[in-house]
Design a protein around this nucleic acid. Sequence first.
DNA 1: TATAATGATTGATATATATCAACAGAGTAT
DNA 2: ATACTCTGTTGATATATATCAATCATTATA
Lengths: 203, 203
Amino acid sequence: MELINSSRFQVSYKAGEIIFKQGTPSPYFVCVTSGLAKIYIEGYGKNLILALIKPVDYIFGPGIYVDNRHYYSAAAVQDCTACLVDVTVFKKLIRENPDFAEEFIKRVSLQSIFNFDQVISLTQKQMHGRIADVIFYLSDKIYCQNPFEMTISRQDLADLSGMSKESAIRILKEFKEEGILTVNNNTLEVLNTKQLRQISETG
Amino acid sequence: MELINSSRFQVSYKAGEIIFKQGTPSPYFVCVTSGLAKIYIEGYGKNLILALIKPVDYIFGPGIYVDNRHYYSAAAVQDCTACLVDVTVFKKLIRENPDFAEEFIKRVSLQSIFNFDQVISLTQKQMHGRIADVIFYLSDKIYCQNPFEMTISRQDLADLSGMSKESAIRILKEFKEEGILTVNNNTLEVLNTKQLRQISETG
DNA sequence: TATAATGATTGATATATATCAACAGAGTAT
DNA sequence: ATACTCTGTTGATATATATCAATCATTATA
């Protein structure tokens, strides 16, 4: 840990700024210390947001052990500060400290499990179910409170749920009309968790 | 390696048989030594095939380091033989041999990169592009020859490309009619690689 | 203040895709 | 030989979703 602390340096990003771009070399890995970031794949005309990263969490791509390239992009959603740690230091730690290596593998595994759920949601549920899933993700995993302030844009909401911005807005409106939730100034409150859960499960 | 060899045991599966089921405990990891297997997520009414596994390749799920459960199912597509290795032996190796650990992380990373491509294909391309991607996957990565015999069913083809069986068949028919490929008795030959590549890229 | 620029919203329309139903062919059991 | 199951195939139809265009709201800028 001292090794990491000695070789890290701090950076800050304004909302909207890109932290790194898909395809570029990745000489260090990123630890988000404040704010909110997103990691996303730039696909064919659209982006797919893989996850939102809040403090204190790490952004490590699969490229580190393959070809040292980033396989997704990262950008600040809100103003962010982050620590950059040299990848070689990180790799050294993996080799020398089995506990650290196990912990790392565990994190990668959790990420992988999350991605499985996400893929099933994206490919097998229709829009209502996907938006429901994203709302649960935001309230339970990211903002961790029920009336929460959505600091992400509608486009981000759409990129999280794999649909067009317009469709995302429409579903949100339907949920409002059915009394499942309220939205005021981007403050979203889930009123009927049970029904929303059911929508998530019935696709 | 001797450690692994001493603790493994061999099993054979007939085509169609299930190797393990999503949700069950995973006390060992599987090495496919002959035949062809598939790993797939059982979703909402449909399956999504994550990958086909051919010899000699390993099936290790992300659950090993999380809760010892399988997060996807595995089944034999053709008759298979496989070696089962105790997970505890495997974990011991990871701790004691940094090269082995690095190699493992590398494999997990490659799998992860493959999944990224797959997600983008599934969520951002339409059916023609997705079928094109699957055909390239089969010819380049699985069967590794150009006129190749499709030992997977149409349903599997559909589950690989995230669409209904009927749609998969229809796209295949269109490709035949346009002279991009031929299909005889499940022997598929790509005639116009360039055009198929373009279909893959334009979505 | 006026004006541009950006993001959010809504409606109308086109289209990609799933679903349902029917049927054909191959293999298997009766 | 007959019935029967399973996979593959085709057509007709319904529907989920994207796209396009217009409008509105809000903030930034001159």
